[in-house]
Nucleic acid binder design. Structure first.
Length: 505
DNA sequence: GTAGCAGGTACGAGAGTAGA
DNA sequence: TCTACTCTCGTACCTGCTAC
């Protein structure tokens, strides 16, 4: 009786939150017998398993949970925007660049940074050497196989969480959810071959259902778990934004949903994409690359007279038949620079290559794609970032991952990535005008100082030196600062020189 | 055509708060 | 008082809409 008295109202509340109808009479039997929970009212994951055996319908994937129209509009507008070529800002930049006087000829005769290196090696040779170096690095790393998690495993993991909650209720204990401290550097270790990685004995935090402070979060976690459960069952997809808009009053703000989704992903040890939560297309790719998507669609990113830019979507992980003659991959921080290099036909002019931009901080899809291409092609990957603390930060996210997503580092990082530019030492070496530079703000300086303390900086003495140069000069520079030298200095001089003479660190 | 704003993807740091 | 946790704010990048 005591069991029923305690569990009935709570289970009722719980089932409303979770959206899963649990047969109470069977539940109590399960509690006593230790058998699995009986869940009804929604399609059992067993039927999903059977569906998997029959083959999952593509149609289901094309029918997300909510806001399908809105997402399609966003993706469509992005496609159209890219297809027409330059963005508004990029066009503005081009107009500003007109009239820029080249200073390259003026620098002829001055002792060059490059001349210090004994005899310039050819582009192909230096790149091949770099590739061999990267291969040696990755060989020491862990397996690169990205495991695919089945729907039944995901549903099972969620059911285990619910079962633990119900078991606590049955024992007259307030249910508690245990989450990993994702933002704690103490839970992170640095491995040169992987990047930032979560340690096995990480610290956790408790989300108690009987504590006024954490109870709302406890409920929201269950709510989102139920959303994920249904999406996995029905093979539908949604963005975090979609989930937020499904009940804005309940969630309050998008950041609440963002945090909980990441917490759930970390708690279940299941990547976010496997939870059927995807991101709006953000990254773009162009260059010497073609592949076949999971549904058989052939995608050609090859740059030619008509620029072809492909948006990076959630299904990038399942691409096959990757064909490329590219000698290297160039990751560009900003979309404006990406567009400018496409205008200059950089992908074909120098040597066939692939260009990728994550438009600032990269989303998961872009990071997955970089990793996928690295695993598939084994060609050198270089980054072109602003010479400021945020540029370095973004590069580190590609190379070593982020703290909060360290539990997925194996699938997202490429430690072999090299910093091609814009290096703080380039600012003085190229004699970039002072008025093209920007003073470091106090926040920039704080960020730089905190980054210098990070574990991966210790094993990158060249990076450390560049950071020290930036800290000492108290100045930063955007990639666009190179246009103060000449309008096409970046694609005509800077990048070819860097690639030819191995100007990366 | 341009500027401003809202909203989208990320990230981290630090202040504030509640509980032990 | 200390610790753990949450929330806010700031950074980067972008697009789309609206008013002028």
């Amino acid at each position: 009786m005591a069991f029923r008295k305690f569990t009935s109202p709570l289970i009722s509340h719980l089932t409303v939150l979770v959206g899963i109808e649990i047969e109470q009479s069977r539940l109590s039997q399960c509690m006593l017998s230790g058998k699995s929970l009986v869940i009804k009212g929604v399609k059992s994951h067993w039927s999903v398993r059977k569906g998997e055996e029959r083959g999952v319908s593509q149609k289901g994937r094309e029918k997300p949970l909510v806001s399908q129209k809105g997402r399609e509009q966003r993706c469509q507008s992005a496609r159209v925007g890219k297809a027409i070529g330059l963005s508004e800002r990029a066009r503005k930049e081009v107009s500003v660049r007109r009239g820029g006087k080249s200073r390259w000829s003026a620098r002829k005769g001055r002792k060059s940074y490059w001349s210090v290196r004994k005899g310039g090696v050819s582009l192909l040779r230096s790149i091949k050497e770099a590739a061999r170096e990267e291969t040696r690095i990755v060989e020491t790393g862990p397996s690169n196989n990205i495991c695919q998690i089945t729907s039944s495993e995901i549903l099972g993991a969620i059911e285990n969480v619910i079962q633990d909650i119900v078991t606590s209720l049955a024992r007259n204990k307030a249910p508690v959810l245990t989450l990993v401290n994702r933002s704690d550097w103490g839970n992170i270790q640095f491995k040169d071959s992987v990047g930032l990685q979560m340690i096995s004995h990480y610290t956790t935090r408790k989300i108690k259902s009987d504590c006024p402070k954490s109870a709302p979060k406890f409920a929201l976690i269950l709510k989102i778990l139920s959303v994920i459960y249904k999406m996995v069952q029905n093979n539908t997809y949604a963005t975090k934004r979609d989930i937020y808009y499904s009940d804005t009053l309940l969630f309050g703000s998008q950041s609440v949903v963002d945090n909980i989704v990441n917490d759930i992903s970390c708690m279940l040890k299941i990547p976010r994409r496997s939870l059927h939560i995807l991101s709006t297309t953000k990254g773009c790719i162009a260059g010497n690359l073609s592949y076949t998507e999971e549904d058989g669609t052939k995608v050609n990113c090859t740059c030619s007279a008509t620029v072809c830019i492909t948006n990076i979507n959630i299904f990038i992980l399942n691409i096959k038949d990757v064909i490329t003659d590219a000698k290297f991959i160039l990751i560009v921080e900003k979309d404006a620079t990406f567009q400018r290099l496409l205008d200059d036909d950089f992908c074909n002019k120098l040597s066939p290559c692939i260009m990728i931009t994550g438009k600032g901080v990269p989303d998961l899809n872009t990071r997955l794609l970089v990793r996928k291409l690295w695993d598939t092609c084994h060609i050198p990957i270089f980054t072109l970032m602003d010479a400021d603390p945020h540029g370095i930060e973004i590069m580190c996210i590609y190379k070593y991952g982020s703290v909060s997503m360290s539990f997925e580092a194996h699938h997202l990082t490429v430690p072999a990535i090299r910093w091609l530019g814009l290096l703080p030492s380039d600012i003085e070496r190229l004699n970039i005008r002072k008025d093209a530079l920007i003073p470091l703000t106090k926040q920039d300086q704080n960020k730089l100082a905190s980054m210098q303390k990070r574990p991966y900086v210790a094993c990158q003495p060249m990076w450390k030196k560049e950071m020290e140069i930036m800290a000492a000069s108290k100045m930063k520079a955007e990639i666009q600062a190179l246009t103060s030298l000449s309008s096409d200095y970046l694609s005509r001089v800077y990048l070819p020189s860097k690639l030819q003479f191995g100007g990366w660190i």
